[in-house]
Design a protein around this nucleic acid. Structure first.
Lengths: 371, 371
DNA sequence: GCCCCGCCTGATACCGGTATCAGAGTCATG
DNA sequence: CATGACTCTGATACCGGTATCAGGCGGGGC
């Protein structure tokens, strides 16, 4: 109906023919550049309307060299954290006339390289990346983009080997604040549900930090924050209280179960991710313990459920939407001609104090322990 | 480094020149079509490797007419339901060499039309749409795509005015089953936390159904399931027990609060969405009531939190990932040449019975009430 | 009355691929 | 030795836009 041949839509030449003008005139009218007399303009517009003309963005990109498309690489679109972040990216991109192609890597560097290649092939104008890469040898795919003149903005995770704009929160500080709160409440045996996929659980503090610097940036920062708080309070570090390895709920249940079965068991658990928190809750239930009476709980990534739990959970809230929005903003500014600042844009996270933290069991009841 | 001029990457002509062969020969080698002698092939490959050549997918799409890109339109990427669905779409698309552009509409038909236009302009090969459209006058944008030969597969929501493949669950049946379970437990005053954004709360059953047929397909189906169960049990319908309007948590808290304050108050609440459930929990807490003792609770969309609540919540689990995966599969099959079946692909949802349903207060204690 | 200038339009090269097709070169055969 | 068949390569048109540039036309100045 809309087009003569039922397929593929009319081209600018067909519109020009319909309007009885030259191709260039139709192009100027429809592309909104150059000069066209009001009369011809009207004829072209009418013809376009009649044929249901829509410009071919591919052809336009070919000739202008810009695609008005951003490429985004994250670990997993299905993860609520990244989903929220993506919403931020997508909202501000759309507002500025850009669309978004999203690729998930599932924390696999191979996939991340493949994703970068796809985006280069599709000639996106810029990258927003939550990268699993850290070290010098792992960043060739990002360098390749930069070499081609494609700006890259990092989000959620910095890449220490690369001097780029990065939109993040202060993970180290956020973790330290959370653990300090537990210590202030009287805890000294604080479990740490952590993430780097290491083969052997690191036995020493040094091994732990080494593993951290080989893996996810956020995980490393959060570990450092945990250690900072322990150090400041002169609490000795105990590797038995750290879970390493992938944060699947089942693993967390096992590991937290182990920490709860220790002779000198944990009286608080700090989780660096959502699955860590749900797994810990399961472990508590399995051990017949309750929070905050037996064990205090703090976790990362606040959400509607954390607030309706009974008792409600103390959580670190990340500004997910803002993280994505700011990353898009920085990237679009660069595309708009701004010089890359090549700096960390640190957004504020918030520790939301609810009822899941209390003094450890056996603490003499004082109303309001002095900070 | 990779390319002579630090920008934009080398073209096939530059590779040909570097290899000392014709453009067509380089194209045949790199494009993997036609015949090239092993020797020249090797020279071209070496040149491409040396220059860091990557084919321009835009140019390729221009000449072949296919972009290997799927366009997806959903209400909100940030919503965990759609995020999970998108993961399904994205996983199976990637596996078949397709990438995905996602656009959110926030349930706004205007936005949906704009999104469809963007996708047409970008010449995606097919659409996957969770549409807010229902009626004949609202589907022009989808028709426009079909007219251009772009196949459309619906997901999560059918569009009654259009005869298309749709990948959905049986919302009506799922809702009926949930409400039947509540009735079987002895409930007769069952609140329904529902969604259509209507100005006035519908006062009659007829108005309710009319509102439903003007709004989201899923909401309408779930309402019908609720009414089905009531009818089968000869329980009179009471409009006071239905919340209409946007399912923001605050509204839900107010509305459920109202139902709990009724002289003949609700003894069970059925929620058609996540925010409905968290809102209901808040309302219960505010009223000083507890579940399942005072009020039983059932909701849509299972997740990790529902299982760790105390007591754990009875939920209808949708196969989110599979919903997206199947939609992508159907679409890719059509793109592969299969004839569109133009049918409903109904996936199975599961009612997960946990501890949030009990007989209404005041029920004589019998061990195991007969079904 | 003539010339020059500026306004407006359309012809055309280009972006970087794909795909067709002509023709150069090789070899076997009559 | 000429011819035909076949193999392999490169020239070129095309996809649908953008952007440059030449030229037609009308009006004003001298």
């Amino acid at each position: 109906m809309a087009t003569e041949r039922g397929q593929a839509g009319p081209t600018i030449s067909e519109v020009a023919a319909e309007a009885g003008v030259g191709r260039a005139t139709a192009a100027r009218t429809l592309g909104g550049y150059g000069y066209v007399s009001p009369e011809l303009r009207a004829r072209v517009l009418a013809a376009a309307e009649k044929l249901g003309y829509r410009a071919n963005a591919l052809a336009r990109s070919m000739s202008t060299g810009v695609s008005h498309t951003l490429g985004v690489i994250v670990a997993d679109i299905g993860n609520p954290f990244f989903a929220g972040l993506l919403r931020g990216v997508s909202d501000t991109s759309r507002a500025r006339g850009f669309d978004v192609i999203v690729l998930s890597t599932y924390e696999n560097l191979q996939e991340e390289v493949a994703a970068a290649n796809v985006l280069i092939d599709k000639r996106v104008d810029g990258f927003i990346v939550a990268s699993a890469a850290l070290q010098r040898g792992q960043v060739a795919h990002l360098k390749a983009a930069l070499d081609r003149g494609i700006p890259v903005v990092l989000v959620d995770r910095a890449v220490t080997a690369l001097d780029l704009d990065a939109v993040v929160i202060d993970n180290r500080d956020a973790a330290r604040e959370a653990v300090e709160m537990l210590i202030a409440a009287g805890h000294r045996r604080i479990g740490f549900v952590w993430g780097p996929p290491v083969a052997e659980p690191p036995a020493t503090r040094r091994e732990l930090l080494a593993a951290a610097s080989r893996n996810l940036w956020t995980d490393g920062e959060r570990l450092r924050g945990y250690l900072d708080a322990l150090d400041d309070a002169h609490i000795p570090f105990d590797p038995e209280l750290v879970m390493a390895g992938p944060k699947t709920e089942e693993r967390v249940v096992r590991e937290v179960g182990r920490m709860l079965a220790l002779p000198d068991r944990v009286t608080a658990v700090f989780c660096t991710e959502t699955d860590g928190m749900t797994g810990s809750l399961r472990a508590l239930r399995a051990a017949g313990l309750s929070y905050p009476h037996d064990v205090s709980l703090v976790g990362f990534d606040d959400n509607a459920w954390a607030a309706v739990m009974e008792p409600p959970l103390t959580m670190i809230a990340q500004p997910v939407h803002q993280l994505g929005a700011k990353a898009a903003e920085v990237l679009l500014d660069i595309l708009g001609g701004a010089e890359p600042a090549r700096e960390m844009h640190t957004l504020r996270s918030r520790l939301i104090r609810r009822a899941s933290v209390a003094p450890p069991p056996g603490t003499p009841r004082v109303s309001g322990s002095s900070t």
